[in-house]
Amino acid sequence: MRKITYREALREALREEMRRDPSVFLLGEDIGRYWGGAFKVTDGLAEEFGDERVRDTPISENAIIGVAVGAAITGMRPVAEIMFGDLAALAMDQIANQAAKIRYMFGGQAKAPLVVRTPFGAGVNIASHHSQSLEAWFMHVPGLHVAVPSTPYDAKGLLKAAIRGNNPVVFCEHKLLYPVEGEVPEGEYTIPFGVADVKREGEDVTVVATLYMVHKALKAAEKMADEGISVEVVDPRTLAPLDKKTIIGSVKKTGRLVVVSEDCKTAGVTAEIAAIAAEEAIDYLDAPIKRVAEPDTPIPFSPPLEQYVIPDEKAIIKAIKEVL
């Protein structure tokens, strides 16, 4: 199968959906013909679809999402880009109070089919305002769907499904994943929300991981295999809806659970998944659940500081060994 990057997979999803459906359009800062997106995801799309449908906006995050909401409730399918996930804080009212609640508050009269694409994640030394992983904020808001693709294949299939779906989606990308290559078929496909993917099958311990952490978990699993330990890596792919069934099923099989996420540990992604496992599968657990997450600090700048707080392969291996 052909290999393309995560960035190309996302671009291909946008291109295909824009060709298929004239109501799909893009808006965001520097996504147009002059820059092509800060991470080049939209590069070349303005040339094909024009400036009206690939719309450069002022630096006004809250209005970008508000405009997407207004367009979505009147028949369009906007895909808004927030240049860095941290900046979603500026748009939180429109995401959490408007997009997420418009359907509910108005008794089901409206739907808001919009996608907010934004990159999270640390590792490129850009400090506290450009490096956070805030997926859990959005998981906490009923009415939102949250996607966390870890591979080019998942990125393309989930983005196409997000655009076609009728709920607002916060589509979390990871900036270290953009250049990562993976197999993506030429043909048409979508990936339904709420369906986890077992990225590696195993018998001894379940590792649930998202986004870039999936790759670290897979490397850790590889090393553990050398030691004769069989690790199953489950990638939920979407945090809302969350495929509890696959996670619980894996825990029931292995009896041991490590949850890995790059966001802060307290009230984060790992906390929710661990709580679900404790609530629904505690009788199957042979060891306490272990969480590997960011240690509740802002993301620091200096490389040794930053590397210290990002969960790494070593921490995952340590956690796996602790539950064995």
Binding site: S23, F25, E52, R53, N62, A63, I65, G66, V67, A68, V69, G70, A71, A72, I73, T74, G75, M76, P78, D93, Q94, N97, Q98, I102, M105, F106, Q109, A110
Partner: peptide
């Protein structure tokens, strides 16, 4: 929505970008 009344938001000022989005939708449609 059947008469174009896109709803009342109780966050002061939050309806303004939504109105602009409806305007953009009109343009694109």
């Amino acid at each position: 929505f059947s008469i174009g009344m896109l709803g009342a938001t109780a966050v002061v000022g939050a309806g303004i970008p939504i109105a602009v989005g409806a305007g953009l939708s009109v343009r694109l449609r």
